[in-house]
């Protein structure tokens, strides 16, 4: 009898708990979704429906041509090409260098390794603002201002955050793998290239995704280093658009959707690897 009551209360408690959880999820879900709905809705409105109270959620008529115009207002395809010209080689460079460096910090035992690694971590704390000005001057002296070089070349020297992620991952791979390969006469680089890299696909994809997003979204560096608008990236182009044409909300929202869409698509395509990768790399703290 007593047992039954206990069970009952647990069930009730469980049900109440479920209710609270779903309730919270739905409320928060709506709060998180509303800005997206507002974004898409605004991007399809004619001007006369923007400034109306109460607001219109479903535009009538739906002005698809906002998107066509947005693609013309900023030279979208040119900016897309520029963005990719930066993001693709940079991501490649970032993967290549960070994976090498991470290997050196995890799979090779050498004196002083952990001290140097602390230095790597410490550079994560270094604000970009500190190096921004001298770097600008260095790149100026190299004649790189106004070109893509300051945005691409530094990525070939590893990023501390990605080095950290990959190192954590490499540490989870059993050392026996390397030992066995060594007995077979494999060089350290051979082990990296033939054994560790193929095993690290999920971690590398995570880093690649993080890195592409970072380059796609980067604003400050293009703002500093790029000059004429033929070289602008999408993020910079959008901001310039706003400064030039002010508050043309429908157009701004359409352009925002357009530059956000590729990132969202990319996320959906890689979602599985991505979540897996985060769990695999030692981000669990």
């Amino acid at each position: 009898m007593a047992n039954q009551v206990h069970n009952h209360s647990i069930r009730r408690q469980g049900l109440a708990r479920k209710g609270v959880i779903y309730g919270l999820l739905v409320i928060l879900g709506i709060l998180f979704a509303l800005p997206f709905v507002w974004l898409v809705s605004t991007s399809l409105k004619v001007d006369s429906q923007l400034f109306v109270m109460p607001p219109i959620w479903i535009p009538d008529p739906i002005k698809w041509s906002n998107y066509r115009e947005a693609l013309n207002y900023i030279p979208f395809w040119l900016y897309l090409k520029n963005t990719l010209t930066i993001a693709i080689p940079s991501t490649f460079g970032m993967l290549l260098s960070s994976s090498l460096v991470a290997y050196g910090f995890s799979r090779v035992q050498w004196p002083g390794r952990d001290v140097v690694f602390i230095l790597v971590l410490a550079t994560m704390m270094l604000p970009y603002q500190v190096t921004m000005i001298p770097l600008f001057i260095v790149f100026r002296n190299l004649g790189w201002i106004g070109t893509f070089k300051p945005l691409i070349i530094p990525s070939f020297f590893g990023g501390p955050f990605y080095i950290f992620l990959l190192r954590q991952f490499y540490l989870t791979l059993p050392m026996e793998l390397s030992d066995a390969a060594k007995i077979d006469g494999c060089s350290e680089f051979g082990i990296y290239y033939r054994i560790i890299l193929p095993l690290s696909k999920p971690a590398l994809s995570t880093v690649a995704l993080f890195s592409i997003m970072a380059y796609w979204n980067d604003f400050l560096a293009p703002l500093i280093y790029l000059e004429d608008d033929a070289k602008y990236t999408l993020a910079l182009g959008l901001q310039q658009f706003q400064r030039q044409f002010g508050m043309e909300w429908a157009m701004l929202m359409a352009t925002s959707v357009v530059i956000t869409l590729p990132i969202i698509v990319l996320f959906f395509l890689t979602q599985k690897t991505f979540v897996q990768g985060i769990a695999l790399t030692g981000l669990k703290g």
């Binding site: 790149f139 100026r140 004649g143 201002i145 000059e227 004429d228 608008d229 310039q240 400064r243 030039q244």
Partner: peptide, 19 residues
């Protein structure tokens, strides 16, 4: 002719950059 409409800060950095 190139426009730097809305990005006027660029000018001084460009001149400083020798470009």
């Amino acid at each position: 002719t190139t426009t730097i409409f809305g990005a006027y800060e660029k000018l001084l950095t460009a001149i400083a950059g020798g470009r």
